[in-house]
Design a protein around this nucleic acid. Structure first.
Lengths: 221, 221
DNA sequence: CATCATCCGTCGATTAGACGACAGTTGTTG
DNA sequence: CAACAACTGTCGTCTAATCGACGGATGATG
């Protein structure tokens, strides 16, 4: 319990419930106050948890936010049966669309502005991490160019994908998500091909939904 | 923890949360299945709790149901600032109206029929107990006739009030609640006057909302 | 009838959450 | 500057929730 492991699948149902309560509480509070104005004790109060218990799961409220956003986004991908197993641009487009939809939803629910305060950067960081996880899961299936770590490739792809998507999304083109997706894919696919080789892999929409845990959890410490 | 006390105000937040989770789970399940078809493990599953934990709080699912209904009803009274401090018929009418509204809500949300199975009798029993609590809280403020226990008076009043209300409510007069309330009050008020003396007390709508705990909890064991 | 399955209610041992207190940090106020 | 208030992050102790297992009750099936 004193170990804030980053484990994705927690064994003890009390821990799952606690993290769910904390994330639900933060989600609710974000509809009322800006992130900066939310205290740890506000979160634990709304979650009907003790303040000390918070620190058994997350080092600070930033980690909780990241876990919440990452978890929500990966859940969205799971619902849409989006999974990585290659480099096909259709899967890239699906991820981009998911990012656009998630950003749209965030900015209608939360009364936060992405262009001021810590909210925007934190959101970016959390989403990039989540995208990186998805990309990393798909990469090891293909042999990459020697000397290029999968981690580096995954990071590059996730940053490029999100950076391009974000730029388009916030440039008053929120309504033309299909156009964004197609453009971003045309930029990102070459990045992947350059790193892992061309014409071998393919992104694809997953055929069947399997019981793959996709919860996003606390930082390792 | 091995003591399933009937305490209304639990000290440990874990216990409050646990009982809230159990009641929320039962409420949700009642919208899907009849009460008889709901297992204890269904409830604890939906509540993300261990089955053994259920028995630390309630002796069986009937007790949980009673606590849930009682708690909901007392909460409704609290929201409407209804409190007992005498025998005025306006407060009687307010309680009757609350009963009617609660019954109406129950039968729109839960897909249970009050005329078959154990649901109806359990609902009756739970509501009478809740009404009895409210009545009992108001009675001791007046000196009653010697030899007549407040508990007996409270029981008599609560059964009479609920019995009359229930009879009218289920006789296809659900839409004329004001009429029901006025009639029931005319029957019940004499009962009270006969027991505690006439013309002394008065029911009244409470002036201000105070922080009186009103949670309904497990049976004493 | 015996067998099997399901659910109930209970128990002891383990683990996570509650609690109160603590020092450290920040910002305000006189 | 000192004093104060508010919030953070941590620690040790106590307690409630989890887990697995148990026997007993019930009902369906051969």
């Amino acid at each position: 319990m004193t170990i804030p492991v980053s484990d994705c699948e927690l064994r003890d149902p009390r821990q799952k419930r606690t993290r769910r309560l904390l994330q639900d509480a933060l989600r609710k509070l974000l509809q009322e106050k800006p992130f900066e104005a939310i205290l740890v004790q506000d979160i634990t109060g709304a979650a009907t948890l003790n303040r000390a218990t918070f620190y058994d799961h997350y080092p600070d409220k930033f980690a909780l936010f990241e876990a919440m956003v990452g978890g929500e986004f990966l859940e969205l991908l799971k619902k849409r049966n989006i999974r990585f197993d290659g480099t096909c641009s259709s899967a890239i487009e699906a991820i981009v669309l998911a990012v656009c939809d998630y950003l749209k939803e965030i900015h209608t629910n939360e009364k936060q502005c992405a262009n001021q305060g810590v909210f925007g950067p934190m959101l970016d960081s959390a989403l990039i991490r989540a995208i990186r996880i998805v990309v990393l899961e798909g990469l090891p299936k293909r042999a990459g160019r020697v000397g290029v770590s999968h981690h580096v490739v995954a990071s590059t792809v996730s940053w490029a994908l999100y950076g391009a998507t974000r730029e388009w999304f916030y440039s008053a083109r929120q309504h033309r998500t299909a156009e964004i997706a197609s453009f971003v894919a045309s930029i990102v696919v070459p990045v992947i091909e350059a790193a892992v080789g061309k014409g071998q892999g393919a992104f694809s929409r997953a055929r069947r939904q399997t019981d793959t845990g996709s919860e996003q959890n606390a930082k390792p410490s």
